Simulated scan of single mutants.
Amino acid sequence: MTSQEAHPQRTGEPATTSAPHHGPPIPHNGPLVTEEDIAAVTEALRSGWLASGPRTAALEEAFAERFHPMHACAVSSGTAGLTLALRGAGLGDTGATVAVPTYGCSALLDAVLAAGCTPMVVDITERTLTLDPERLDRASRLDAVIAVHTHGHPADLDALRPKAALLVEDCCQSLGGHDEQGRPLGGIGDAAVFSFYATKVISAGEGGMLLQSDRAAWERVRVHQDPAAREIYTPRFNHRLPDPAAALALSQFRRLDRIVAHRRTLAARFTAALPPHIAPPPGLAPGQVPYRYCLRAADRAQQQQWIGHLRAAGISADPLIPARHLLHRQLGLEPQEYPVAERVVDSTVSVPLFAALTDEQAHRVAAALTGLPD
C-alpha cells in the first residue's frame, strides 16, 4: 500500500541528459476505466441501490470463489481490511506485537494502531523489498506479521509462517499474482487484504477486500458491515463498501487475468529495451504481478541522473518513497538499524507501468530506457 501513488514525491529537477520529449507527458500511474466499467456503475446507480447491497455481495462471492476456501468481506479500504484482520483474530485492543516492513505506506502503522496493537518495524530484503524474516527474533514468536507483497514481489511466507501466530498477507499491490511455488498470493496466509484504491491492480476509487481462512474470525468482522442496532452495545466503525464502488471493482475483477497479462507484457518489453549496462529490476519472477517496474541505481547521484533523463523524455519516473517516509523514521527509530531500506530509497527509479498505458506510451518509455546513461 503506497500513499505516494496519489501524490508522488518530487525531489527537485535533476540534471537531464535526454532529448526533449514529443507528445504529452506520460504519468507515473493511472486507472483504466472502460466502457464496460462505466456501464456497470451506471446500472448500479439506476438500480437505486447505493449502500452495500447485491453488487457488494457479488464481489465478495467472486473473491471467495477465486480464493477458495477463504471467506471474503468487502471493506471501505485496504487499511480497514488490515485493521479488521487483526481484530477478527482476537488481537484488538490487546497491545499485541505486529511486525510490519519499514519500506511501505504509513497506513500499515495506522491499521496496527487502530486495532489497538503495537507495531514492530522491520528492515527488508535487498532483492524483493519485502519484510526480511532473518530480522525477526528467532527466540520469541510474534502475535502477528503483516507480510506486504511489495511492488508485487511475493514475501517469503514460508519463512514468516513460524514467526507469528497470525500471518496476514498485504496483497494491495499483488492481486492476480502467485509465489514461486505457483500458489495464489492472498490464499496462503491466515488472512489477506486487497486494496481497490484508484491506482491499484483493479480500482473502485476506494475500497478493499479482506479474506480470512477462519470462519469464526470472518463472522466477527461482519458486524462492521451491519448497520443494525446491537443487542449488547460494543463500539464499531462503518467499513462498508457501497454498491456502485463494488460494481466498478467487480467489472474490473472479471478481467483481472487480462490486466495482469498486460502488466507482464509491459515489464518484459521494458526489460528487453534496457541497455547492456543496466540490470533489470531485481525480484521480477514468473507468476508475479509487476505492480511497479523499479530499476535500482548504484547510488543517489545515478538515481537522480536516470530520473532526469526520463523526465526530459516526458516520462514521470519517480523514487517512490523518500527516506523521511520510511516507517522507522516516522516512529523516530534509528536509521542505522534499517540499512537496506535506507539504501533502497536512494537507488530506486520507478518507471510508469499500469494497465491504462497505451502502446504508443509504452514505446516512448522503452525508447527512453534504451538511452539510460551509465
Score class of each variant (00 low, 15 high):
Thr2Gln: 08
Pro8Phe: 02
Pro8His: 04
Pro20Asp: 07
His21Tyr: 13
Gly23Asp: 11
Gly30Asp: 04
Pro31Asp: 05
Asp37Cys: 08
Ile38Gln: 07
Thr42Ala: 02
Ser47Asn: 03
Leu50Val: 14
Ala51Asn: 13
Ser52Ile: 01
Ala58Thr: 04
Leu59Trp: 03
Glu60Ile: 01
Phe63His: 05
Phe63Thr: 07
Met70Arg: 07
Ala74Leu: 04
Gly78Leu: 05
Gly81Cys: 04
Leu82Glu: 00
Thr83Arg: 01
Gly90His: 05
Gly92Thr: 07
Gly92Asp: 12
Asp93Pro: 11
Ala99Ile: 12
Ala99Lys: 00
Ala99Leu: 14
Pro101Phe: 03
Thr102Cys: 11
Thr102Val: 12
Thr102Lys: 06
Thr102Gln: 08
Thr102Gly: 15
Cys105Glu: 06
Cys105Ala: 12
Ser106Gly: 15
Leu109Met: 12
Leu113Ser: 14
Thr118Pro: 14
Thr118Tyr: 14
Val122Phe: 01
Asp123His: 00
Glu126Trp: 11
Thr128Ser: 09
Leu129Gln: 07
Asp132Ile: 09
Val148His: 03
Ala155Thr: 14
Leu157Phe: 05
Ala159Glu: 14
Ala165Gln: 15
Val168Ile: 15
Cys171Asn: 09
Cys172Pro: 07
Cys172Thr: 11
Leu175Phe: 01
Leu175Asp: 03
Gln181Ser: 14
Gly182Asn: 10
Gly182Val: 08
Gly182Thr: 08
Gly186Leu: 06
Gly186Ile: 08
Gly189Thr: 09
Gly189Asp: 07
Gly189Arg: 02
Asp190Thr: 12
Val193Gln: 01
Ser195Asn: 10
Lys200His: 09
Ala204Trp: 10
Gly205Glu: 09
Gly207Ile: 07
Met209Phe: 05
Leu211Met: 08
Gln212Tyr: 07
Ser213Glu: 10
Ser213His: 12
Ala216Tyr: 11
Ala216Asp: 11
Trp218Cys: 13
Glu219Val: 15
Val221Gln: 00
Arg222Met: 13
His224Arg: 10
His224Asp: 12
Arg236His: 13
Asn238Gln: 10
Pro242Cys: 03
Pro244Thr: 03
Leu248Gln: 09
Ile259Met: 01
Val260Lys: 00
Ala261Leu: 04
His262Val: 03
Arg263Tyr: 01
Leu266Asp: 02
Thr271Glu: 05
Ala273Ser: 06
Leu274Cys: 06
Pro276Phe: 04
His277Ala: 08
Ala279His: 15
Pro282Trp: 02
Ala285Leu: 13
Gly287Arg: 04
Gly287Phe: 02
Arg292Leu: 13
Leu295Glu: 02
Arg296Met: 09
Ala301Thr: 12
Ala301Leu: 14
Gln303Phe: 07
Gln303Leu: 11
Gly308Asp: 01
Gly308Pro: 11
Ala312Asp: 13
Gly314Asp: 04
His325Gln: 14
Gly332Phe: 02
Gly332Pro: 15
Leu333Val: 07
Arg343Phe: 07
Val344Asn: 06
Asp346Arg: 06
Thr348Gln: 05
Val349Thr: 05
Pro352Arg: 01
Phe354Asp: 08
Ala355Ser: 13
Ala356Tyr: 06
Leu357His: 04
Thr358Gly: 03
Asp359Leu: 14
Ala366Cys: 12
Ala367Leu: 11
Thr370Ser: 14
